[in-house]
Design a protein around this nucleic acid. Sequence first.
DNA 1: TCTGGGGTCCTAGGACCC
DNA 2: TCTGGGGTCCTAGGACCC
Length: 416
Amino acid sequence: MLIILHIDMDAYFASVEQQANPALRGQPIVVSGRPDIHSVVAAASREAKTYGIRAGMSTWEARKLCPHLTFVPGDPDKYETITRRFLDVLVDYTPMVEVYSIDEVFMDVTQEADRHGGALCLAREIQRRLRATLGEWITCSIGIAPSKLLAKLAVEKAKPAGVHRICPQDVPQVLARTPVEDVCGIGPRIARRLSHMGIWNLADLSRYPEGYLRARFGVYGAVLAMWGRGLDPSPLIPYWQEEELKSVGHSHAVPKALRDPEGARSVLLYLCERTGRRLRSKGLAGRVVHLDLRDANMHHRGGQRALEVPTDDEEIIFQTALDLVRSHGGFPGQTTMVGVRVGSVISGKEAPRPLLPEQRRRERLEHAMDHIRNRYGESALWRGSVYACRVLTQATGGMGRQKEIAQDRQADDRRS
DNA sequence: TCTGGGGTCCTAGGACCC
DNA sequence: TCTGGGGTCCTAGGACCC
C-alpha cells in the first residue's frame, strides 16, 4: 500500500511576507496585484481570513470586508526562492517529490515511513524542520493517504498547520462524504453534469460502470471511474522526471486608459516582448502563436497560427499575433484583456537560426536588450510604443511555475 | 467596479497525403 | 475512373488547476 504525503503551505504568499516583515505579523494582509486597478487576492493571511477574505476575491470586495486591510504587492521571485529552500529539505527524505505548484508537493514515503516511526511521525518531523528552516510564520499542513487523490482531500482537514491521515480502512466513509466538486479536476461544469445524473459524492460515482462514464465523458470518464473508487490514475511524477515546459505566454487585464485599439496594440507588443524574453532566457523556441482577447462583455476572441520555423523572436511573435487580430476582426472597441502564448516549444538549439540579415540583426539586438535587463532590471529599457504599459509591470504571478522550479532543481542535482 | 495570470489537457472538424 | 481508410497537421473552443 502506498503512503503519499501532500504538503500544502498555509496562506503561502501572505506568510512569506509576514515572515519577511515583522510589521505585518498578526495583521490582516493580502498579497495581490495592484489594488488600484482591477485585481484579485492571491493569498490572504490567517488574520484576513477571519474577515471572510479568500484567495480569488476581488481586492475591492476584500477591502469592503476589512477596511484596514494591508495590501502587499506580490513578489514571485521571493516565493520561488522560499519554495526552492523547502524542496531542499524534502529531498533529504526521498527523491520521490513531485512539485505540484509553487506551494504544494506530493511525496511518496512508502519506503521511508517506517524508518521515521511511521507516516504520522515523519509528517510532524517534516513540519518541524520546515518551520526551523523557513521561520515560525511559514507553516504547512500535511495530508497522508494511500493515493494522491486522497492525500489532497486529507490536507483540507489538516489546515492550518496540522496533519490528517486517511487510512485504507477509512476510504469507504471518505468516498461517501466527499462531494464530487471537492476533487481536484472536477470543476463546476462537470459537477453540474454529474448532479443531473444523480451523482453528488464519490461513492455515487463508483456505482456507475466505467463504460457508461466513458460513453458520456470520453477519456475523462475512465478517470472519473477511478476517482470514484478512491484511486488516482496519475502517478507521482518526481521533479527529476518533470517534462519540459509546453508553452510560454503572458496575459494581462488592460487598464481603462489603454482599452482602445491603439492601447491594446501596445499592450500586445509589451506581452510579446516579455514572452520572447522568457523563451530566450529558457533557451526555448515555439512554433504556434496563440492570441486571446476579451471585450467589455467578457467575450473571448482569438485564435492560433502555426509558424514555419520555431521562434523566440518577439517581433515575429508580435507580427503573427497582429495578423491573428486582423483575421478576427481587429481589436474590440474596448479590449479588457490581452493574452499571447507560444506553444509547441522545443529547445532553441534545435531551432534553425534565422537566415535573413535583418532577422539576425534583430536577434543580436534582442540579446543585447536581454543583457541590459538582466543586469539593470526589467524596467531599465522600454520601447517607446510600450512605455504606456509600464503600469503593468507589477504582476502577482508566481503560480504555474512548478515546471521551472522542478527543472532548476534537476539542474542543481546534476551540479552536485 | 464583476472576473488576475500562469499553465495543461481534451474534443472535433477540415485539409492533405499515401 | 471511383472510392476507402488511416495518419498527421492545423484551427477553434472548452474545461480545469493553483
